[in-house]
């Protein structure tokens, strides 16, 4: 195991985060704060409780998930796309690192950033809404698991993308709708029956539901299924990455 290599990639990526602190941390915090102000405080005060939770508190897990998914994907995809774009990827390809080590370095750094960001957003939310966490260990577990899974997904996008537009397209066109329709702002029970079924095909539903359960002990879907689905998605990403390195897809000709 080339631990020096993993550490080099990890530190390189983390240094990028500190350099771009404004984009990495400030912008998601600001946009999430706006959601809290608008939906939590302004509109939320006029909404009834959902499952016995005030609306402001109800949307917190979903909003944290939104930032977590977006940031995991954008961090990890950018991290591997940039060397491809600038050509410095030659060095990683010619280095004595296995693909497991490359993934550990890039995805590890991206997931770390997401976890830090998730924590910052939770602290920020505290300024607007009073909430409690019923199962803190599970909450952290979901945070970490989701960060890793979607950083893996972002890594795949970064390798697949051959232009900056493609980097943006997946988070904007796919992830944002999935999060908004995944029960961030409502409970699935509130939907007509047919849409409840359709919603079950949205993987983000399982993440948000599980995460909300960790906070308040209520969920649309059993927490075991949430964990299971997250792991399934993680396995799918790992399989795709394994295939990418095995075939050299868009990395080695």
């Amino acid at each position: 195991m080339n631990l020096h290599g993993v550490r080099a990639i990890y530190r390189f990526e983390m240094a990028r985060m500190w350099r771009t602190l404004m984009q990495s941390v400030a912008s998601p915090v600001i946009s999430t704060s706006l959601y809290f102000v608008v939906f939590g405080s302004a509109i939320g005060s006029r909404m009834g409780d959902i499952d016995g939770i005030s609306y402001g508190a109800f949307i917190i897990p979903g909003l944290v998930m939104l930032s977590l998914l977006m940031q995991s994907i954008s961090n990890a995809s950018f991290g591997i796309y940039m060397p491809k774009f600038s050509g410095t990827i030659y060095e990683v390809l010619s280095a004595p690192v296995s693909y497991v080590e490359v993934v550990l370095g890039y995805v590890g750094a991206a997931a770390t950033k997401s976890v830090i960001l998730g924590a910052i957003i939770l602290l920020t939310a505290r300024l607007f809404v009073d909430y409690h966490v019923l199962h803190p260990v599970w909450m952290v577990a979901f945070l970490v698991l989701t960060s890793i899974t979607f950083s893996l997904f972002g890594f795949i996008i970064g390798i697949w993308a051959d232009g900056f537009e493609k980097l943006q397209i997946v988070p904007l066109m796919i992830v944002t709708p999935l999060v908004f329709l995944g029960g961030t702002f409502y409970s699935i029970d509130m939907l007509p029956e047919i849409w409840q079924t359709v919603t079950l095909f949205n993987p983000v539903v399982y993440l948000i539901s599980g995460f909300r359960w960790a906070f308040y002990g209520v969920s649309d879907i059993h927490v075991g299924i949430s964990v299971g689905m997250t792991l399934v998605f993680m396995m799918a990403c790992l399989t795709a990455i394994w295939w990418i390195f095995k075939t050299g897809y868009r990395l080695r000709t």
């Binding site: 080339n2 020096h4 290599g5 550490r7 080099a8 990639i9 530190r11 390189f12 240094a15 060095e91 990683v92 280095a95 004595p96 690192v97």
Partner: peptide, 12 residues
Amino acid sequence: DAVSFSRGLFGK
């Protein structure tokens, strides 16, 4: 930083 990165990447 760039040169130190390379050294680490190559396992040293």
